[in-house]
Design a protein around this nucleic acid. Structure first.
Lengths: 262, 262
DNA sequence: CGGCTTCTTGATCAAGGTCAACCTTTGTGG
DNA sequence: CCACAAAGGTTGACCTTGATCAAGAAGCCG
């Protein structure tokens, strides 16, 4: 039951705004093989939902817990986290948000966001008008289904995280989490070979796997000494994913997931 | 990091089948105030998806982890759980399924269910043809949106559970969970006053909150001795919900949620 | 009445939290 | 360019929480 007094460097979001510089049609993200291709008509509608793109500094909030918003966002570049803060100040990272992910749907659908989204690195994101979503559902049922599938996958990830915290030991949790991130990055073409940039501070990682910072260090050391995973200087190295998977009980699925985007 | 060898009394599901005895139009569940009213056309379509109702014995599986199925289900009566089993045999309860909840969507959308659903009590459920779902999305966008909202709420519950396991102590976790269940039951008119039937074995509860059975007992004792909650003979009593909420950090939300059903 | 399973509790031990110190790195002003 | 401060990383010593094991009590069924 750890606790900490977070410095809470949350800028309220009214940052570098701009009229759309990246047109949806030219979005390099969506052209990648790992994303669902939109029909011309879908693209036009989604394009019409787009209000602007914004850039955020590392550490900034995309939106805050409890906020109501009619905007939803697509992360274009950078890493972020969904985080929930308890009344007592404790913090739990719910999930990592990677390029191509949609965020803020819950805030829009539920009227108030049950979590914050915070930037881990500088971010570029598209701001979309959520109020157009019902119209989108009306005319583009396939896209709606795709969104539903993406949501389901996200939920499944949450279920996995829950299982991790409930039933696995410290090192296994971390190993599992690292592998999962690796897979998500790979499926977007953001992880090649054995290493990748990993802009996640220890404290944050601890708040993800439900450990104290000190104990997280011990577990990381164990992983390092066993040659399973190495995390230093914000670079993650996994020499042998299969070995790590065996250690942490991960199911290494090929995962031909197609991200629906927007 | 608890572990146990589960006896695994999983009947494969081929039970008391019957042609629909309860017509959707006459479904007492959906007539309750806590459920979204369907339009005539929606009702006709949903009705057309219904294949039969079934009854399952307590302990039976509605479907098993890893199974592919084109069926989805609506729970009509009884309690069930979504449960994930790890290769090592450890078990994590992901969520409770209560009357009115839809189950099996993930299994259909993802091609294989990442969890089992097990009956805690005798169950009555409706079996729906999932393959009609895209058609439903095509003609009933409002219903699709409602489904999305329900999914989002479910995910939010998962997030909360995660926060519980990651950041709260044993008794707080349990208190929170009990309150959450109480609210869900109340919103369906299944919990009046201070007590309700609570058909959940200790072992299962332990697997929900990520504790060992022995430690769960200690935590329950503490709740009992402090007059916060009492669980005995499968009856849950919460004398003062507000007090328990204060103790466990629960947000007692009025929650006018409308379940979308089917 | 056994023979089951579940509930309950105590004794003991390991996993993980807390605290405090020290070491890096990075950044800043002189 | 250096001195210093601030923030994060790393580790050890110690203590709390919760896991494990064991064993008795209580309900349930053949």
């Amino acid at each position: 039951m750890p606790a900490h007094s977070s410095p809470k460097a949350s800028h309220s979001h009214a940052p570098h705004r701009s009229t759309p510089t990246v047109q949806c049609q030219a979005c390099t993200l969506r052209c990648g093989p790992s994303f669902r291709q939109l029909s011309r008509r879908e693209l036009r509608l989604v394009s019409g939902m787009k209000r602007r793109d914004i850039t955020l500094a590392a550490g900034a909030d995309v939106f805050a817990q409890g906020a109501a918003s009619s905007f939803i966002y697509t992360l274009y570049e950078g890493w972020a986290v969904r985080v929930r803060t308890l009344p007592g100040g404790e913090r739990q990272i719910l999930d990592f948000v990677l390029p191509g992910d949609l965020i803020g749907l819950a805030g829009y659908l539920l009227g108030s966001s049950p979590y914050s989204v915070q930037a881990l690195t500088p971010l570029r994101l598209c701001v979309l008008d959520g109020t157009r979503l019902p119209a989108l559902f009306r005319t583009e049922p396939d896209l709606a289904m795709a969104l539903m599938v993406a949501r389901t996958r996200e939920q499944q990830r949450g279920d996995t995280r829950l299982t991790l915290l409930g039933r696995l030991g410290a090192s296994e949790r971390i190993g599992y989490l690292l592998l999962e991130l690796r897979e998500r990055l790979r499926s977007r073409g953001l992880f090649e070979g054995q290493s990748c940039a990993f802009p996640v501070q220890r404290r944050l990682l601890a708040d993800t796997v439900g450990l104290s910072k000190a104990h997280l260090m011990r577990a990381l050391r164990q992983l390092r000494e066993q040659g399973l995973a190495n995390l230093s200087d914000s670079v993650l190295t996994i020499p042998d994913a299969r070995k790590l998977a065996r250690f942490s009980g991960y199911f290494l699925a090929p995962s031909k997931e197609q991200h629906p985007i927007l």
